[in-house]
Amino acid sequence: MWTRLKRLYHKMGSPKWFYEITSQWSPWILLVGSALMLTGIVWGLAFAPADYLQGNSFRIIYIHVPASLLSQSAYLFMAVAGLVGLVWKMKMSFVVAKVIAPIGASLAIMSLLTGAIWGKPTWGTWWVWDARLTSMLILLFLYFGVIAIYNAIENDEMANKAAAILSIVGSINIPVIKYSVEWWNTLHQPATITLTKKPTMAPEMFIPLILTILAFYCWFAVWVFARTRNEILFKERKTNWVKKLLNNDKGAQL
Protein backbone atom coordinates (compact mmCIF):
# COMPACT_ATOMS: atom_id res chain seq x y z
CA MET A 1 0.00 0.00 0.00
CA TRP A 2 2.68 2.44 1.12
CA THR A 3 4.95 1.72 -1.84
CA ARG A 4 2.03 2.11 -4.20
CA LEU A 5 1.19 5.48 -2.70
CA LYS A 6 4.80 6.46 -3.02
CA ARG A 7 4.89 5.46 -6.65
CA LEU A 8 1.73 7.43 -7.31
CA TYR A 9 3.30 10.44 -5.64
CA HIS A 10 6.39 10.24 -7.80
CA LYS A 11 4.26 9.87 -10.88
CA MET A 12 2.22 12.91 -9.93
CA GLY A 13 5.39 14.86 -9.59
CA SER A 14 6.21 14.20 -13.20
CA PRO A 15 4.85 16.87 -15.53
CA LYS A 16 4.71 14.46 -18.46
CA TRP A 17 2.57 11.97 -16.55
CA PHE A 18 0.30 14.73 -15.26
CA TYR A 19 -0.11 16.09 -18.78
CA GLU A 20 -1.01 12.73 -20.26
CA ILE A 21 -3.35 11.55 -17.53
CA THR A 22 -5.28 14.81 -17.36
CA SER A 23 -5.58 14.88 -21.15
CA GLN A 24 -7.35 11.54 -20.87
CA TRP A 25 -9.54 12.48 -17.94
CA SER A 26 -10.58 15.98 -18.93
CA PRO A 27 -13.13 15.13 -21.65
CA TRP A 28 -14.91 12.70 -19.36
CA ILE A 29 -15.02 15.07 -16.42
CA LEU A 30 -16.25 17.79 -18.75
CA LEU A 31 -18.98 15.50 -20.03
CA VAL A 32 -20.15 14.50 -16.55
CA GLY A 33 -20.00 18.12 -15.37
CA SER A 34 -22.01 19.38 -18.34
CA ALA A 35 -24.66 16.67 -17.93
CA LEU A 36 -25.02 17.55 -14.24
CA MET A 37 -25.18 21.24 -15.05
CA LEU A 38 -27.80 20.78 -17.72
CA THR A 39 -30.01 18.67 -15.45
CA GLY A 40 -29.52 20.95 -12.47
CA ILE A 41 -30.19 24.15 -14.37
CA VAL A 42 -33.23 22.91 -16.26
CA TRP A 43 -34.65 21.41 -13.09
CA GLY A 44 -33.84 24.44 -11.00
CA LEU A 45 -35.02 27.08 -13.46
CA ALA A 46 -38.02 25.37 -15.00
CA PHE A 47 -39.39 22.83 -12.55
CA ALA A 48 -38.44 23.84 -9.02
CA PRO A 49 -41.25 25.79 -7.30
CA ALA A 50 -40.92 29.51 -6.79
CA ASP A 51 -39.88 30.72 -3.36
CA TYR A 52 -42.85 31.87 -1.25
CA LEU A 53 -40.96 34.94 -0.10
CA GLN A 54 -38.63 35.85 -2.93
CA GLY A 55 -40.55 34.56 -5.94
CA ASN A 56 -38.46 33.59 -8.90
CA SER A 57 -35.45 35.71 -8.04
CA PHE A 58 -34.15 33.01 -5.71
CA ARG A 59 -33.27 30.89 -8.75
CA ILE A 60 -29.97 32.70 -9.04
CA ILE A 61 -28.74 30.48 -6.19
CA TYR A 62 -28.07 27.80 -8.78
CA ILE A 63 -25.09 29.90 -9.85
CA HIS A 64 -24.43 32.00 -6.76
CA VAL A 65 -24.12 29.20 -4.24
CA PRO A 66 -21.86 26.91 -6.29
CA ALA A 67 -19.60 29.84 -7.18
CA SER A 68 -19.31 30.93 -3.52
CA LEU A 69 -18.68 27.43 -2.23
CA LEU A 70 -16.16 26.61 -4.89
CA SER A 71 -14.29 29.86 -4.52
CA GLN A 72 -13.82 29.08 -0.83
CA SER A 73 -12.71 25.52 -1.43
CA ALA A 74 -10.44 26.71 -4.22
CA TYR A 75 -8.54 28.84 -1.72
CA LEU A 76 -8.14 25.80 0.48
CA PHE A 77 -7.02 23.67 -2.50
CA MET A 78 -4.49 26.35 -3.36
CA ALA A 79 -3.13 26.41 0.18
CA VAL A 80 -2.92 22.62 0.37
CA ALA A 81 -1.18 22.46 -2.99
CA GLY A 82 1.24 25.12 -1.77
CA LEU A 83 1.87 23.20 1.45
CA VAL A 84 2.58 19.99 -0.48
CA GLY A 85 4.98 21.94 -2.66
CA LEU A 86 6.78 23.46 0.31
CA VAL A 87 7.03 20.32 2.40
CA TRP A 88 7.58 17.62 -0.20
CA LYS A 89 9.22 19.91 -2.77
CA MET A 90 6.81 18.77 -5.44
CA LYS A 91 7.01 21.23 -8.30
CA MET A 92 3.81 20.12 -9.99
CA SER A 93 1.76 21.08 -6.99
CA PHE A 94 3.16 24.62 -7.13
CA VAL A 95 1.96 24.80 -10.73
CA VAL A 96 -1.52 23.71 -9.66
CA ALA A 97 -1.57 26.27 -6.85
CA LYS A 98 -0.52 28.97 -9.28
CA VAL A 99 -3.27 28.26 -11.80
CA ILE A 100 -5.96 28.05 -9.10
CA ALA A 101 -5.38 31.64 -7.90
CA PRO A 102 -6.98 33.51 -10.82
CA ILE A 103 -9.72 30.87 -11.18
CA GLY A 104 -10.64 31.20 -7.52
CA ALA A 105 -10.62 34.99 -7.79
CA SER A 106 -12.94 34.93 -10.79
CA LEU A 107 -15.30 32.59 -8.95
CA ALA A 108 -15.33 35.03 -6.03
CA ILE A 109 -16.16 37.86 -8.45
CA MET A 110 -18.90 35.73 -9.97
CA SER A 111 -20.31 35.10 -6.51
CA LEU A 112 -20.24 38.81 -5.66
CA LEU A 113 -21.89 39.80 -8.95
CA THR A 114 -24.66 37.23 -8.67
CA GLY A 115 -25.07 38.22 -5.04
CA ALA A 116 -25.52 41.85 -6.07
CA ILE A 117 -27.99 40.93 -8.79
CA TRP A 118 -29.91 38.87 -6.28
CA GLY A 119 -29.75 41.67 -3.75
CA LYS A 120 -31.49 44.18 -6.02
CA PRO A 121 -34.95 42.53 -5.93
CA THR A 122 -34.51 41.17 -2.40
CA TRP A 123 -33.18 44.22 -0.57
CA GLY A 124 -33.91 46.86 -3.19
CA THR A 125 -30.24 47.74 -3.44
CA TRP A 126 -27.22 46.27 -5.19
CA TRP A 127 -25.00 45.99 -2.18
CA VAL A 128 -25.74 45.29 1.44
CA TRP A 129 -23.07 44.56 4.02
CA ASP A 130 -24.45 41.08 4.49
CA ALA A 131 -22.19 38.66 6.36
CA ARG A 132 -21.77 36.25 3.48
CA LEU A 133 -21.20 38.90 0.86
CA THR A 134 -18.69 40.65 3.10
CA SER A 135 -16.79 37.44 3.76
CA MET A 136 -16.72 36.79 0.04
CA LEU A 137 -15.37 40.29 -0.57
CA ILE A 138 -12.57 39.65 1.93
CA LEU A 139 -11.86 36.30 0.29
CA LEU A 140 -11.50 38.16 -2.99
CA PHE A 141 -9.01 40.49 -1.29
CA LEU A 142 -7.07 37.46 -0.08
CA TYR A 143 -6.94 36.19 -3.66
CA PHE A 144 -5.75 39.64 -4.78
CA GLY A 145 -2.83 39.35 -2.38
CA VAL A 146 -1.79 35.97 -3.73
CA ILE A 147 -2.10 37.10 -7.34
CA ALA A 148 -0.16 40.27 -6.56
CA ILE A 149 2.70 38.24 -5.16
CA TYR A 150 2.87 36.07 -8.28
CA ASN A 151 3.06 39.26 -10.34
CA ALA A 152 5.61 40.99 -8.15
CA ILE A 153 8.24 38.26 -7.84
CA GLU A 154 9.97 37.53 -11.11
CA ASN A 155 11.74 34.34 -10.10
CA ASP A 156 9.19 31.53 -10.51
CA GLU A 157 10.41 29.34 -7.70
CA MET A 158 10.51 32.21 -5.21
CA ALA A 159 7.09 33.43 -6.28
CA ASN A 160 5.59 29.95 -5.87
CA LYS A 161 6.98 29.51 -2.39
CA ALA A 162 6.05 33.03 -1.27
CA ALA A 163 2.51 32.62 -2.56
CA ALA A 164 2.29 29.24 -0.83
CA ILE A 165 3.21 30.77 2.52
CA LEU A 166 0.73 33.57 2.06
CA SER A 167 -2.11 31.24 1.06
CA ILE A 168 -1.41 28.93 3.99
CA VAL A 169 -1.49 31.85 6.42
CA GLY A 170 -4.62 33.09 4.66
CA SER A 171 -6.42 29.78 4.94
CA ILE A 172 -5.63 29.53 8.64
CA ASN A 173 -7.14 32.99 9.00
CA ILE A 174 -10.25 32.39 6.91
CA PRO A 175 -12.26 30.76 9.74
CA VAL A 176 -11.32 33.63 12.04
CA ILE A 177 -12.30 36.18 9.43
CA LYS A 178 -15.60 34.43 8.70
CA TYR A 179 -16.43 34.17 12.36
CA SER A 180 -15.62 37.79 13.08
CA VAL A 181 -17.56 39.05 10.07
CA GLU A 182 -20.63 37.02 11.03
CA TRP A 183 -20.39 38.27 14.58
CA TRP A 184 -19.97 41.85 13.37
CA ASN A 185 -22.97 41.45 11.12
CA THR A 186 -25.32 40.26 13.86
CA LEU A 187 -24.08 43.14 15.98
CA HIS A 188 -24.97 45.82 13.46
CA GLN A 189 -27.86 44.39 11.48
CA PRO A 190 -29.95 42.22 13.75
CA ALA A 191 -32.83 41.50 11.38
CA THR A 192 -32.32 41.28 7.65
CA ILE A 193 -33.09 38.52 5.23
CA THR A 194 -29.91 36.57 4.77
CA LEU A 195 -29.33 35.04 1.39
CA THR A 196 -29.31 31.24 1.24
CA LYS A 197 -29.81 30.84 4.95
CA LYS A 198 -33.25 29.21 4.80
CA PRO A 199 -34.28 27.21 7.80
CA THR A 200 -35.37 24.40 5.53
CA MET A 201 -35.18 24.16 1.80
CA ALA A 202 -37.65 22.06 -0.12
CA PRO A 203 -35.99 19.02 -1.71
CA GLU A 204 -37.25 20.13 -5.15
CA MET A 205 -35.10 23.25 -4.70
CA PHE A 206 -32.27 21.51 -2.96
CA ILE A 207 -31.46 18.60 -5.25
CA PRO A 208 -30.86 20.73 -8.35
CA LEU A 209 -28.59 22.91 -6.21
CA ILE A 210 -26.52 19.86 -5.28
CA LEU A 211 -26.33 18.94 -8.96
CA THR A 212 -25.09 22.36 -10.01
CA ILE A 213 -22.56 22.38 -7.17
CA LEU A 214 -21.15 19.06 -8.34
CA ALA A 215 -21.16 20.36 -11.91
CA PHE A 216 -19.17 23.42 -10.82
CA TYR A 217 -16.60 21.16 -9.17
CA CYS A 218 -16.24 19.12 -12.37
CA TRP A 219 -15.85 22.21 -14.51
CA PHE A 220 -13.40 23.62 -12.03
CA ALA A 221 -11.28 20.48 -12.28
CA VAL A 222 -11.29 20.65 -16.09
CA TRP A 223 -10.40 24.33 -15.95
CA VAL A 224 -7.53 23.75 -13.52
CA PHE A 225 -6.24 20.82 -15.57
CA ALA A 226 -6.34 22.82 -18.80
CA ARG A 227 -4.41 25.72 -17.32
CA THR A 228 -1.95 23.40 -15.63
CA ARG A 229 -1.30 21.63 -18.91
CA ASN A 230 -0.65 24.99 -20.53
CA GLU A 231 1.87 25.83 -17.84
CA ILE A 232 3.52 22.44 -18.24
CA LEU A 233 3.91 22.91 -21.99
CA PHE A 234 5.50 26.29 -21.42
CA LYS A 235 7.78 25.15 -18.64
CA GLU A 236 8.90 22.02 -20.44
CA ARG A 237 9.02 23.54 -23.89
CA LYS A 238 12.66 22.60 -24.33
CA THR A 239 12.24 18.94 -23.47
CA ASN A 240 11.98 16.27 -26.09
CA TRP A 241 8.52 15.02 -25.25
CA VAL A 242 6.94 18.44 -25.64
CA LYS A 243 8.78 19.08 -28.90
CA LYS A 244 7.59 15.74 -30.17
CA LEU A 245 4.04 16.42 -29.05
CA LEU A 246 3.94 19.80 -30.71
CA ASN A 247 5.43 18.44 -33.93
CA ASN A 248 2.80 15.71 -34.02
CA ASP A 249 0.10 18.29 -33.58
CA LYS A 250 1.47 20.33 -36.43
CA GLY A 251 1.63 17.22 -38.59
CA ALA A 252 -1.96 16.39 -37.74
CA GLN A 253 -3.15 19.87 -38.69
CA LEU A 254 -1.37 19.80 -42.01
Binding site: I149, A152, I153, V169, S180, V181
Partner: peptide, 30 residues
Protein backbone atom coordinates in the same frame (compact mmCIF):
# COMPACT_ATOMS: atom_id res chain seq x y z
CA UNK B 1 4.91 37.90 7.39
CA UNK B 2 4.21 40.56 4.78
CA UNK B 3 7.47 42.34 5.52
CA UNK B 4 9.36 39.06 5.16
CA UNK B 5 7.70 38.19 1.87
CA UNK B 6 8.33 41.58 0.32
CA UNK B 7 11.74 42.45 1.75
CA UNK B 8 13.68 41.70 -1.42
CA UNK B 9 11.29 43.48 -3.74
CA UNK B 10 11.71 46.99 -5.00
CA UNK B 11 7.95 47.51 -5.18
CA UNK B 12 7.44 45.90 -1.80
CA UNK B 13 5.94 48.97 -0.16
CA UNK B 14 2.89 48.94 -2.40
CA UNK B 15 2.47 45.18 -2.22
CA UNK B 16 2.47 44.80 1.53
CA UNK B 17 -0.92 46.44 2.26
CA UNK B 18 -2.48 44.08 -0.29
CA UNK B 19 -1.07 41.06 1.48
CA UNK B 20 -1.62 42.11 5.06
CA UNK B 21 -4.73 44.29 5.32
CA UNK B 22 -7.24 41.46 4.72
CA UNK B 23 -5.64 39.55 7.59
CA UNK B 24 -6.11 42.58 9.86
CA UNK B 25 -9.88 42.58 9.46
CA UNK B 26 -10.74 40.43 12.52
CA UNK B 27 -8.57 42.69 14.66
CA UNK B 28 -10.31 45.77 13.30
CA UNK B 29 -13.76 44.32 13.90
CA UNK B 30 -13.24 43.17 17.46
Amino acid sequence: IGAGLTVGLRKGGMLMPLLILPLYIPVLIF
